[in-house]
Write a protein that binds this DNA or RNA. Sequence first.
DNA 1: ATAGGGTTAG
Length: 613
Amino acid sequence: MGHRNLGLCSLKYANHVCLVSVINYRIAATTPFHPLWRHSCSLFHSTITNAPPPLSALHALSIKNASLQTLNSANHLLNLYAKSNNMGNAQKLFDEIPQKNTQTWTILISGFARAGSSQVVFNLFREMQTKGASPNQYTLSSVFKCCSLDNNLQLGKGIHAWMLRNGVDVDVALGNSILDLYLRCKVFEYAERLFENLPYKDVVRIVSWGSMVSGYVWNGMYEDCLKIFKLMVRELVVVDIRTVTTVISACANVGILEFGRHIHAYIQKIGHRIDAYVGSSLIDMYSKSGSLDDAWMVFRQINEPNVVLWTSMISGCALHGQGRQAIGLFEEMLKQGIIPNEITFLGVLSACSHAGLLEEGFRYFSMMKDAYHINPGVEHCTSMVDLYGRAGRLMETKNFIFENDISHLTSVWKSFLSSCRLHRNVEMGKWVSEMLLQVAPSDPEAYILLSNMCASNHRWDEAARVRSLMHQRGVKKQPGQSWIQIKDQIHTFVMGDRSHPQDKEIYSYLDVLIGRLKEIGYSLEVKLVMQDVEEEQGEVLISHHSEKLAVVFGIINTANRSPIRIIKNLRICTDCHSFIKNASQLLDREIIVRDIHRFHHFKHGSCSCGDYW
DNA sequence: ATAGGGTTAG
C-alpha cells in the first residue's frame, strides 16, 4: 500500500471506514502475508478507484468460525459493498455471515433502500425481526424511506404506530424520514403534528423545515411553502441554502417576481455563495416570473456552471420565444465540453418550436438521437409535432405522429389542432379533432380548441355543436384566473370579478380603454371567443376576461411606462391577445403575460409570440 | 459502520 493510493484516497474516499476496514482485516489475518491482507488491499484500492472489488475477497474472509472481531470486519466490508452500490456482492457476503447483528441487517437494508428496492427492504425488515434482531433508528429510517418511495402509507403508519406503542425514541433524522412519507402521501395533519413534536434544539432540525418546505412544493401548496419560509426567517437566524433552493422553486411556480427578488436578496444578505443548484433555481424563477434579464444576470455570475444551469437558461430563453439565443447558448455549452441531457434537448427543441426554427429543430432532434444516443421521449416528440405544425408541414406532422407511436397523447393532438387552425386547414383539422376527442373526451381544452377552429373558419353551426357536445358530456371548463403582484400584495382576478375593492375604478377604466382601443382598430372578437365563456353572453363577458381585469388593474396601480406582469392559469384567448397588443401600443407600455404555455411580451402593438401560441 | 432536505422539462 503506497503513498500514491493513500493520496488518492484522501482525494476521493477519505473515508474513515476504508482505513478502519483495512486495519481490521489486517488484524484478522494470521500472518503478515496472509492472502486476506492482499485482498483487503485490492478491495481498498477498488474502493478508491470505484471499480467493483474482486469477489474472491469475500471468500478469502474465513468467517465461518467467526469471532466478534471478524463480524465487525464483515460488517465493514458489507458496508463498502453497499456504499458502492454493489448489492449483488453485498447480498452474497451477507448470506455468508452466520451471526448477523442489528448492524449487519441495517447495512444491507440501507443499501437496498438507497437502490430503491423497497420490496427487498420490506422482506429483510420482517425477516430480521423473526431472527431476533431488533431494528434501530437507522433501520427504521431506511424502511420509511422505502414506504415513501412506494407511496405505501399504510405500512409506514403501521410501523409508526408500533413505534409509539413501544416507546421507540424518534430522533430528528428518523423523524425526517417519517415526515417525508407523510408529506409525499399528502397527509399534512400527520406531518404537521410530527413536525411540531420533533426535538427542537437539534441542529439537523433544519432538515425538517426543509422537508416541510419541499413537501408543500411537491403538492403545489406554494402559499403554505412561502408562509413556512417566512416563519423560518423569523425564528431562525440563518435558513440553510438547500431549503432556500426549494423555496425559490416554489416562487418559480407562482411566478411572482417581487417575492423571488426578496429571496434572492436574502441569500445575498446571509452571504451564501450561489452554486449551480441555487443558480439554476434562480434562473428558473426569474424566467418564469417574466424577467429574462435577471435570469441572464444570475447565469453570468456562476463560476462553475453545470448542465442543469445551462439547461435552465436555455429553457428560460425558450419560454420567452428567444429561439436564437437558446441555440447560441446550446452551441456555447457544447463548445465548453458540457454534455447535454434529455432535458437540455427538450429546452432546445421547445425554443426552436416557439421561434419557428424548423431546420434547426430537426437538426437538434437528430443530434440528440445520433450523437448523444438519447431516445426521444414523448415530450421531445410533442415538441417536434409543435415544430412541424407551426411551420405548416401538416402531412409531415401526421406521419411523424404515427412513426413515433405518440398517437395516444392528448398534448400531441392539441398541438396539431392549433397548427391546423393557424394554417386554416379545416379538413385536416376535423380529422385531428376526431382523434383528439377519442383520446381526451373529458378535456375541456380539447373542445375549446375545436370550436375555436370551427369559429375561425366561420363554421358557426359546427362550433355550436361542439359546445353542446361538451355540455352533454358534462365537461366543465376550468375557470380562468389571472394574477398580478403590486408591492407585497397578490391580486387575483376571475372573469367578471366584482369582489375587488377597486372594482368600480377597474370597470370604468376598462370601458374607457376599450373605447379608445376601438378607435385604433381593435374590435372585440366576440364570435371567435364565445366558446371560452361557456355561455353565449355576448360582448360584456368577453370584455371582462380575467386577464383584461388584471391588465387594467396594473395600469391603474403602477407608474406610467413601467412594465406590467400578469400570470394566467390557462391559455390566453384570442381577444385578450389582441386587446393587450393594442393597449401596449396606445399606452406605450410593456405588458408581459405568462400563460399556461409560454410568455407573451407585448410591446408597441405586437407580441413576441408572433401570434402563435 | 448503518438513516434525513436542493436545481433544469411537462
